[in-house]
């Protein structure tokens, strides 16, 4: 079978549609993961032992099981208990929850890396717990985390093809449907790979820049 450029141009608009959904899912998933991760990280630091233990175990469980199965679970099991989600929403929730458990570790490390002297100084200045967090800890903890967070968002981007298994019409699913219609696999699948490689390589450049800009930990 030969590579056919005409066919490539013919299927390109369909694939671009898919790329849009892929990027949309990644962005929404990243936002959710950032929020969920912060929630988990804060819950694990909570003085309430039961809460921190339960959240810790749940996060461990989610991290130890495949995203694909979690997506199936959200998409097929939740309707049984009356929660019917559109595919894209189910996919974004799955991505967000799964990667939230990873970003939680990033937040934890970031918060732990703020030197103890800062906490003590905040106390010495008579700042309340809320003021300590918003004015002292978070502003120092966030910048070093940014490259690590971005790393996970890129990883998430590469997991989005899994959403095709729960019928989200993203890049991979568009490619598969094109391939099944014309019965040509070389071009669509190769193009999907090329799209991913191109976007990943661009994001690596962005990541390097983020690392240079924020990654330095002052000692």
């Amino acid at each position: 079978m030969e590579w056919d450029w005409n066919f490539v141009w013919q299927i390109m608009p369909t694939l671009i549609q898919g790329v849009k959904i892929t990027i949309l899912a990644t962005l929404l998933g990243s936002v959710l993961a950032a929020v969920v991760g912060l929630g988990i990280a804060l819950a694990r630091r909570s003085p309430n032992k039961a809460l921190s233990r339960i959240v810790g175990w749940a996060a461990e469980f989610i991290r130890g099981t495949p995203l694909l199965v979690q997506l199936y679970f959200i998409f097929y099991v939740l309707p049984d208990i009356g929660i019917l989600l559109p595919p894209l929403v189910a996919g974004v929730i799955g991505l967000g929850l799964h990667y939230g458990t990873y970003t939680a570790e990033v937040y934890r490390a970031g918060i732990d890396n703020v030197p103890r002297g800062q906490w003590e100084a905040a106390k010495a200045c008579n700042l309340s717990a809320r003021q300590t967090w918003t004015h002292i800890i978070i502003p120092q903890a966030i910048p070093p985390m940014i490259p690590a967070l971005a790393n996970y968002f890129i990883a998430m981007f590469k997991e989005t093809p899994l959403l095709s298994a729960i019928t989200v019409l993203e890049l991979m699913n568009q490619a598969k449907s094109v391939a099944n219609t014309y019965y040509r696999y070389i071009e669509p699948i190769t193009l999907v790979g090329a799209f991913f490689l191109a976007i990943s390589l661009c994001s690596v450049v962005l990541l390097r820049w983020l690392e240079r800009r924020y990654g330095k930990i002052e000692r």
Partner: peptide
């Protein structure tokens, strides 16, 4: 390293299963 880290495992699997037989 860059190629296999840059593309999704899912795409690589489909490539191995559907495209390699064609060549």
């Amino acid at each position: 390293i860059e190629f296999f880290r840059g593309t999704s495992i899912f795409v690589q699997l489909f490539f191995a299963y559907f495209v390699l037989p064609l060549i």
